[in-house]
């Protein structure tokens, strides 16, 4: 996993609530057996006017020029800003894979769906819960200033604008540690292998039917 320490970048505004994972990456692209290459189909149904299929040449497809990511001023954006319940719906990790592949490293929203939120941290993306009032201000700032940027500092847990205004945010210490260092948590968990084995022995005594039934 890519480490994330500081992200300074253009903010792309997606001003709607309940952005679901079907919207982030439609199901036809879930047929891939790889983890990469989902970026060109991020928000496919919003981004293009035709029906997307795997393997299409996306450069020749008709663009929905009203959609925020198709506007030249947001090219190269690395921070996506949206509203409540971002990432609701399916558990597909293809959603953070697509966001990351497109170039987003930070998602700002007033709330996130649990599974999506968790999946982000496994893929080098930092989802940040920001209160509605602060978001309202940033949506206004983005609308009024082309090239509007924010700087996110994970170590310091702050978001800063060009004028130096600073907003603090919360993040789980363990997730922060993994993200700052780009750590894969399987290796970390396996350091506790003895504890897992010990648990299994105890459990097998009281609930033996949990073991050995599927062969």
């Amino acid at each position: 996993m890519k480490a994330l320490t500081t992200v300074k970048g253009i903010v792309a505004p997606l001003d709607r609530s309940n952005v679901d994972t079907d919207m982030i990456i439609p199901k036809q692209f879930l047929k891939s057996i790889k983890r990469s290459g989902f970026g060109p189909n991020l928000f496919d149904e919003l981004r293009y006017l035709d029906e997307g299929r795997p393997g299409m040449d996306n450069s020749t497809r008709p663009l929905n020029t009203d959609f925020v990511l198709n506007q030249p001023r947001y090219v190269g954006a690395s921070i996506l800003m949206s509203r409540a319940n971002f990432g609701c719906g399916s558990s597909r990790e293809h959603a953070p894979w697509a966001l990351e592949d497109y170039g987003f490293r930070v998602i700002l929203a007033s709330s996130f769906a649990d599974i999506f939120y968790n999946n982000c941290f496994k893929n080098g993306i930092l989802p940040i819960v920001v209160n509605e009032q602060v978001l309202d201000g940033w949506f206004k700032n983005v609308a009024g200033n082309e090239g509007y940027e924010l700087t996110v500092d994970l170590q310091a847990q702050t978001i800063t604008d060009a004028e130096g205004n600073e907003v603090a945010f919360e993040v789980d210490p363990f997730r922060k540690h993994c993200l700052l260092n780009g750590l894969d948590d399987i290796g970390l968990t396996l350091q506790e292998a003895d504890k897992i084995k010990e648990y299994e022995l105890k459990r097998a005594e009281i609930h033996p039917w949990v073991f050995g039934q599927i062969k």
Binding site: R35, S91, R92, E93, P96, I115, N118, N119, K122, N123, D185, I186, T189, L190, A193, I196
Partner: peptide, 13 residues
């Protein structure tokens, strides 16, 4: 429900 990274995590641990 879990994501694919956790599917791998559960398979391994």
């Amino acid at each position: 429900g879990i994501g694919t990274s956790e599917v791998e995590h559960v398979l391994a641990t």
